[in-house]
């Protein structure tokens, strides 16, 4: 099939970008969306033009590296799917598709579709961990964890840190990302000892990075490729309020 692409091209952080039109012929329905861009890039290189820069790595939906807004939606039209797991059988011959980078104040564009998500690492560094150094651990079965709690923690821990929640949010808020980590660790017995500090410090860092505020719109949950629930945001809010009243 033939696909018309309208792709955001931007040389670097400091220049302005624009939409450029491309046509990709002979798209196979079994191709992934990124493989279609590979094919286009191969054609551009042959012509001596600069290929489209985009982030991608594992191509199996788990590393969180790919980061495109496809037809206005982070990771494209399918629910619970990263861009790399979007297959061309979801499109038909002659379709036109807009491809843009994740846009947020806290995610500056590096080039074309690649953005800088370093702010997420700094949020984790502020408190997204259990302070246990190597060698300090007790026997693994010494801490029983109720199965339902472990499952809930796992649901939150499934976050791949891609930033689709931020890109989807009209406020550019990182609440779902931050909440998922607080929720993962604060629910578990191992994470309780520093639950207060974690909630306070991570939220503080999130604000410092220039992410917007959460106004309970829910776009983050709708676009999250791992279907992380906004219940986690409710949990973060509880943890945060508790921390404000009881914390340092």
């Amino acid at each position: 099939m033939k696909i018309n692409l309208k792709v955001w091209r931007q040389k670097n952080t400091n220049t302005s970008g624009k939409i450029v039109n491309y046509v990709v012929n002979e798209v196979n329905p079994d191709m992934s969306f990124l493989e279609m861009i590979d094919v286009l890039n191969g054609q551009l290189v042959r012509k001596g033009e600069d290929p489209i820069a985009f982030d991608h790595d594992c191509r199996e939906g788990i590393c969180g590296m790919c980061s495109m807004v496809v037809d206005g939606r982070p990771h494209g039209p399918l629910h619970g799917t990263t861009t790399c797991q979007l297959y061309m059988r979801n499109y038909k011959d002659g379709d036109t598709i807009y491809v843009e980078p994740f846009r947020a104040h806290a995610f500056p564009i590096i080039k074309d579709l690649a953005v800088n998500r370093g702010a997420f690492d700094r949020i984790i560094a502020a408190g997204g961990f259990v302070s246990v150094s190597t060698g300090q651990a007790q026997d693994a079965n010494a801490i029983p964890v109720e199965k339902a709690v472990a499952d809930n923690a796992m649901d939150a821990a499934a976050c791949i840190g891609c930033g689709a929640c931020v890109a989807a949010c009209p406020n550019g808020s990182a609440m779902l990302f931050t909440a998922a980590k607080v929720s993962h660790l604060n629910q578990l017995p191992q994470g309780k000892a520093e639950a207060t500090r974690r909630a306070l410090n991570m939220v503080k860092q999130m604000d410092a990075e220039g992410f917007g505020k959460c106004s309970n719109i829910g776009a983050c949950e709708a676009e999250c490729p791992k279907e992380i629930s906004i219940e986690n945001i409710a949990r973060l809010n509880r943890e945060y309020i508790k921390a404000v009243f009881t914390g340092e």
């Binding site: 259990v130 801490i143 923690a153 578990l188």
Partner: peptide, 12 residues
């Protein structure tokens, strides 16, 4: 032991 202490949510 180490991973459980870090909060890795292994199946239970």
């Amino acid at each position: 032991d180490q991973c459980v202490a870090q909060g890795v949510p292994f199946a239970r």
